[in-house]
Design a protein around this nucleic acid. Structure first.
Length: 200
DNA sequence: CGAGCGATTCGC
DNA sequence: CGAATCGCTCGG
């Protein structure tokens, strides 16, 4: 059984976003205790965004606005944003204060609180509960209004370290056709052979 | 101050 | 493949 009370050490949030994403975040457990309900899923897919140089990043080129402000905080907090009038997306802020790097969590394999997830998602199919950035926020009860900027070492949303190593696949990121030269960067990482993915 | 749009999802 | 749906950004 997994001990979800363990939390990813602070040091990893302050290091290189690509290293942290592939070696520490991928395969770890995103946990939430929202409205008194515990849910957790293993991170199977994520994407890296770099504020200084990456046209796909909301904070490019180091653009500080009310929306992007949390990305400039020190690593270890959540950047949660709202899109399409109905969906939230959850990112892990990585790197020292003043940099705007974030890791978008795109898909989870449900591990705990499946009944809660099914209820929140109005859906019974396990493969459809958390396989997408908007879906997993709904399943875990994560929303910008309550959770943007929240510390990930607190007791509402946190990350529990991976308990084994996984082979990693790199692909281009999803839904960023506007990003020009950066749209083909292979900064989407998936656990090899894990079926809980948002897209092929 | 308002038009345009988005790191998506679902149903037709 | 198009609608849903609204906060954020930017231009006027």
């Amino acid at each position: 059984m997994i001990d979800f009370s363990l939390k990813l050490a602070s040091e990893f949030y302050l290091q290189d976003a690509f290293q942290t994403a592939q070696k520490h975040l991928l395969g770890s457990y995103l946990c939430s205790n929202v409205d008194g309900k515990f849910t957790a899923g293993m991170i199977t897919e994520l994407e890296v965004y770099i504020g200084a140089t990456d046209r796909a990043c909301h904070a490019y080129p180091n653009k500080l606005t009310p929306r992007t402000a949390t990305m400039f905080k020190a690593g270890g907090c959540a950047y949660v944003f709202f899109v399409y009038g109905m969906y939230n997306q959850f990112n892990v802020v990585v790197g020292p204060e003043g940099t705007a790097n974030a890791v978008l969590i795109r898909s989870l394999e449900p591990v705990a609180g499946l009944d809660v997830m099914k209820e929140r998602r109005h859906c019974d199919n396990m493969k459809n509960l958390t396989t997408g950035p908007g879906k997993l926020c709904q399943a875990l009860g994560i929303a910008k209004k309550q959770h943007d900027g929240i510390d990930l070492r607190g007791d509402e949303i946190w990350i529990s370290p991976r308990i084994q190593n996984y082979d990693c696949i790199a692909k281009p990121r999803v839904g960023i056709d506007y990003a020009g030269e950066d749209k083909d960067n292979p900064w989407r990482y998936l656990i090899k052979d894990n079926p809980f993915i948002s897209k092929v």
